[in-house]
Design a protein around this nucleic acid. Structure first.
Lengths: 224, 224
DNA sequence: GCAAAAGTGTTCTCGTTACACCCATGT
DNA sequence: ACATGGGTGTAACGAGAACACTTTTGC
């Protein structure tokens, strides 16, 4: 009289910046996969899969991320473990959710198939299971964390202008930021260092290029 | 050729305020259980156990908490899922960790046996597995969260003086706080409401009693 | 020259800190 | 009376918001 074992899965909320539908500016997008079997067949869901016995949690997240988008994450962190008894009809699944960021330059090359598609974070289709709630929670974490860390790093390449960095913040936080104040805040934060290069080409004064002072941000208690 | 399944456990870091060893003021304490079998037999560990198929994650945490201390938590929130491949010798265990607060008045009645004992958070014995790392992470969360929420609620009864509340903050954050400034900050925060009662008995001016404006704090994405 | 974004300067407000000082009670 | 913590007043400081203004490019 052994009951069915509890299934343990790892799924990932993957964020990237992409031009908005009206292409005026960038907004937050994420890739979803269409479920090809029951339960919830046909609905869109977060990429993920069962945890393998010899696989670290973050490895599992990175694996499904690559499987889905063909990309490598520039940032990856555990979000939360969702395990409500009734979150999946018919079986008990505990999902450990990660969230990841990928650079815009790379996200442009991401794989798109019949069953893998990118959606704007503020205009999602109906999602399977409790995944809508998960995405909403992940978005909150992204916004919150951007304000007290150098998370913008993960969306940008090595060199960038302060305008570009500001656009990242405006896209994620979905509000305008005063360029003058933003400049001072970033410069005094110490997270960023000016280079002696500038970016020309715009119909205006060239912008100085910056780089991040620290290589990356990882705040999980363990680097698993 | 099926490999051993991954074990899924739920453990809890339980915090309470208790008088320090020199009894001068209160500090943070937590209960640990002694492992009575391998692996890591004899070492102290966080209370926990395997997740049952029909049990919510938080139910499992509350169950082991009650089993260990005989108490009910006034606050309970998921902390993190620890799942490194090598964190437990011989088998693969993914532990979903909760952290909990219990009121001082109740914590005084907590069960203590040969294999269950309370320790000061800043003077722990050698712990089993990665539990020392887990406790350290939980302490950081407790301190961080205290500063931007009404978490102090969970340590206190319904009525309290602002001095008592300040002592909670001083115990958790382990630093002195200016009473005058603390008073103003709390009063303008709106988290607290003055009553028309005072507490007499001290050899000084009676202190006004306050109560929290909101019944409780729960910030997990799901109330599981 | 003009538009546009880069970059600087200035002021205002508000929250935090430090600390002086008064209040009300028990002994 | 006086010690003790409860409670109020106030000035200094610093971070952030608002916005005027100057600089340097492309066209």
């Amino acid at each position: 009289m052994t009951s069915a074992p509890i299934e343990l899965a790892v799924s990932t909320v993957i964020f990237a910046l992409r031009p908005a539908a009206d292409s005026s500016r960038r907004t937050v997008w994420l890739p979803l996969v269409r479920r090809i079997r029951e339960p919830e067949q046909g609905k869109w869901a977060l990429p993920g899969g069962p945890l393998e016995p010899d696989q670290e949690l973050s490895e599992s997240a990175a694996f499904t991320l690559n499987e889905t988008t063909g990309l490598s994450p520039s940032y990856l962190e555990q979000l939360f473990a969702f395990g409500n008894v009734d979150r999946s009809p018919g079986n008990r699944v505990v999902s450990i959710i990660y969230w990841a960021l990928v650079r815009e330059e790379e996200a442009a090359e991401a794989v798109v198939t019949e069953n893998v598609r990118w959606f704007p974070a503020d205009d999602l289709p109906e999602l399977a299971f409790d995944h809508a709630e998960i995405v909403s929670y992940a978005l909150g974490r992204l916004r919150g964390k951007l304000e007290y860390s150098n998370l913008g790093h993960a969306f940008l390449g090595e060199l960038f202008t302060l305008s570009t960095l500001r656009e990242v913040y405006e896209a994620v936080l979905d509000r305008r930021i005063d360029p003058a104040n933003f400049r001072r805040q970033v410069e005094t934060s110490g997270l960023v260092r000016a280079t002696d290069q500038v970016q020309t080409g715009g119909r205006h004064r060239p912008a100085r290029l910056y780089r991040f002072a620290t290589p990356a941000a990882s705040t999980a208690p363990t680097q698993e």
